[in-house]
Amino acid sequence: MEAVVSFALAVLTLFGFYALLALGMGLIFGQLGVVNVAFGDFVMAGAFVMYGLEAVPFVPRVLIALVLGGALAWAIEKLLLRPLYVQGFLATLLAMWGVGIVLRQTADAVFGSTPASVASPVTGSISVLGVQYPTYRLVATTVSLVVVVAILFVVYRTDFGMRLRATIDNREMASLLGIPPRPMIMATFVFGTVLAVLAGALQAPMLGLTPHLGVAFLAPAFFAVLVGRPGSLAGPLFGAFVVALLSNSLRGLFSETTATLLFYAALIVLIAIRPQGLDWKRPQWTTALLARRPA
């Protein structure tokens, strides 16, 4: 029983973290067709803001991190990505790779590469069905899941969410219906990035922070996005759950390294036999622009 409970808690914790990442990455991917390879580095940036502003109380500090991350995302979308969409996904992928380098090196220049850490606002552990579990983990997981539920609510139950889904589904049609695509693209990128920053800020007290921290989160988050059912915003959530479950089960059964190898092998097989499970949405307006240009 205890084993089951701790396994469930472990899956839930990891799911909370990857759900934020996958949702953010999935939104950006679905709306902009951008594979955001700097996503892990935004997680790192969120964590380092928490470290750098240690004097500020925890909750306001998280909010500051979100605002800073949003502002950065705004600048990146406006100055870097906007002219690159028409060139296809590799151009934006490479651009984001460059952003990742700059983020890592900036963190390195400002904070150095000696591991750093952030004090946890809540210490101790509480008993969950007979299993002692660190309180802060439960808090962080709960916050993550609440945010995820709130996002789902916004996306599926509000007017804004409907516009969002409309633009992701068919930008031209949405545009004809009076939903301006530019602000929606911007909003999606900023919002997706803020989710990464939030994940990093929440995760910070559990981690040894180095500028290279984020690289390890990229592949699982990417897989989570791609494993999910196409065309649905809940897809990445499902993917995050698959990743959390698969990762924890394998790591429970095998040695860490074998688990890592099996994890990637399982994903390869999953993707090879079900390529339809992936959603590589080339933004419709790109196609439209390309087709229109010669006319």
Partner: peptide, 13 residues
């Protein structure tokens, strides 16, 4: 049936 992403993911893995 594969898309560009399939190759991206397979090669990363």
């Amino acid at each position: 049936k594969a898309q560009a992403s399939t190759m991206a993911v397979l090669t990363v893995a």
